[in-house]
Every structure is written in structure tokens, then in C-alpha cells.
Amino acid sequence: MTKILSLAPEKCTGCRTCELACSFQHNQEFRPAASRISVLTWESAGVSVPMMCLQCDNAACVKVCPVGAISKSVTGAMVINENRCIKCKMCVIACPFGNTTYDGSSGKIVKCDLCQGDPACVKFCPSGAVTYKEAAAATVSKKKAFAAKFKDLVQEVSE
């Protein structure tokens, strides 16, 4: 069975250790801008939410890529073939959650690749807000419900 990253915003302390672990895993440097996970914080509400690619079943990023540079790996992650990618940023625009980004320093499109099945963000999260578990039906439903709720919250905040 496929494993997925599961987020528990109520456990997130906003420490951003996941961002540092991710950037170090992928770039051997502590640079949150290069991280494939980002922690969004609403200080007025006292809420921090770790966000990364949701590895959608019907991924918009895959649909809009004009050169077919994004595909699903054996771990279930949507990965970018850097040799095919033309950096058009259509995938960045298409992601409804903003979880595919462009790193100007490296000139690459970045998105969570699940660290080939051993996510660094999970290993180093001190509060257990990010976990990697089997995609049981209940877990998938919880993730989709949270994503819908988060989308509504983002729309409220941006208005």
C-alpha cells in the first residue's frame, strides 16, 4: 500500500525544523527558500500549518506540463525530471495549494518528492506534526477534508 505524508496542524509549533531538514536533505544547506515544505503561520490566530505537495491523484501540475516532465514515482510522489523540465513554471501556476515552487537561486522547480520514501521533515519534526503513514481510507479522507478547509481559510485571509 502507498504511504502518504500526514499533517497535524494542531501539533505544529511553528519551529520550521521541517523546512531546514528538507533544504539540507536536497541542497546540503540550511535555506528554507529551497525547502519543499513551508510552514504558514497566522500569528493573530496562533496557528502554524506545515504545507507540502499533496501528491494529488489527478495532479494539475502533471496535466499542464507541456513536456511531460512530471510523473509519479514508485513512492507515489510526483517528481520532476530536471532534464526534461523547461522551467516554464506552468506547474507552479497550476498547483491549487501553491506547493510547487520555483527556486530562483538554483533555477529549479521544486516540489516534495517524499525523499525517496524516507522524508527528512518527518524524521526531524520535534512535535510529530508531520508523519509518513499508510494511506488508509480514513487518513486520505482526513487529508482531503483538511486541504478543503485550508483552501477556504486561505481565501478568507487573502480577502
Score class of each variant (00 low, 15 high):
139 T>N: 14
56 C>A: 07
73 S>K: 05
4 I>F: 05
147 A>I: 00
60 A>C: 07
82 E>S: 13
18 C>Q: 07
93 I>R: 11
48 S>K: 01
60 A>S: 14
149 K>Q: 15
14 G>F: 10
76 G>R: 01
7 L>T: 12
128 G>V: 01
81 N>R: 06
120 A>D: 07
45 A>Y: 07
48 S>I: 00
110 V>R: 15
116 Q>Y: 08
40 L>V: 02
89 K>I: 04
4 I>R: 07
108 K>G: 05
68 G>F: 02
156 E>G: 03
159 E>P: 04
20 L>Y: 01
125 C>K: 12
158 S>P: 00
17 T>S: 13
27 N>W: 11
41 T>E: 11
119 P>G: 09
29 E>T: 13
27 N>F: 13
40 L>Q: 02
72 K>V: 15
10 E>T: 03
41 T>V: 10
37 I>Q: 01
58 N>F: 09
101 T>E: 11
82 E>G: 06
154 V>C: 06
70 I>S: 02
24 F>N: 06
147 A>M: 09
155 Q>N: 11
91 C>N: 07
138 A>Y: 05
8 A>H: 15
130 V>E: 15
114 L>T: 01
92 V>Q: 12
7 L>S: 05
108 K>P: 04
20 L>T: 01
7 L>M: 13
89 K>F: 08
117 G>V: 00
15 C>D: 12
155 Q>S: 11
72 K>H: 06
16 R>E: 14
99 N>V: 10
85 C>F: 03
126 P>N: 10
115 C>W: 06
112 C>H: 12
152 D>E: 15
48 S>R: 02
18 C>K: 05
22 C>G: 05
116 Q>I: 07
95 C>P: 02
72 K>T: 15
12 C>G: 02
10 E>I: 00
144 K>I: 02
64 V>T: 13
113 D>L: 07
58 N>Q: 14
